[in-house]
């Protein structure tokens, strides 16, 4: 099967690549352009570990073909911080509130949270739990993840909560 040219902007850099049509976006991100922060946790589009922002919206990158992202813009966990010492507030909040243990779900959780807070800057606890329902965590019991999102909301809205 022939390869198809794609041009995708990832974390601010545009990559021109040739992919097999069957290549999943997550595999292209990991294997072709080194975005190994985006991980795979399932085969059924259920776990959300692979969540990235595609043109600003959260998507499961295991459930999108790389060819479908042609011409679009992606943010992965590796493009969220402005620099080593300038983390995104959601990253800071997950660290401060211990919103992770093994960390496997964290890249997806963080990006799903960025999307959630973009749509709803001051969510209730129920809205946080619903908003993150597509992201599974086997370690934390979710409690500290909810706290992290609440704290991120505070940080981002200047303590408006």
């Amino acid at each position: 099967m022939s390869h198809i040219p794609i041009s995708v902007t990832v974390d601010g850099t545009t990559y021109d690549s040739e992919v097999e049509p069957r290549t999943l976006l997550v595999h292209w991100l990991r294997e072709d352009i080194g975005r190994v922060g985006t991980v795979v946790g399932c085969d059924t589009s259920s776990c959300g570990a692979c969540t990235v922002l595609l043109d600003g919206q959260s998507v499961k990158s295991c459930s999108v073909l790389a060819v479908q992202a042609d011409g679009q813009s992606i943010t992965t966990i590796q493009g969220l911080a402005e620099g080593e010492d300038n983390w995104h507030p959601v990253q800071t909040a997950f660290k401060e509130c211990h919103g992770l243990q093994c960390g496997y779900c964290t890249p997806g959780m963080v990006l799903a949270t960025v999307d959630l807070l973009g749509e709803n800057p001051t969510p209730t606890e129920a809205e946080i739990r619903e908003g993150l329902e597509g992201n599974l965590c086997r370690c934390t019991g979710y409690h500290n993840i909810v706290k992290s999102v609440q704290y991120a909301s505070d940080l981002m809205s200047g303590g408006a909560r």
């Binding site: 959260s58 499961k60 908003g131 329902e133 992201n135």
Partner: peptide
């Protein structure tokens, strides 16, 4: 239906 990420696609 499903979750926010799936509903985006």
């Amino acid at each position: 239906v499903a979750d926010p990420a799936i509903r985006h696609r």
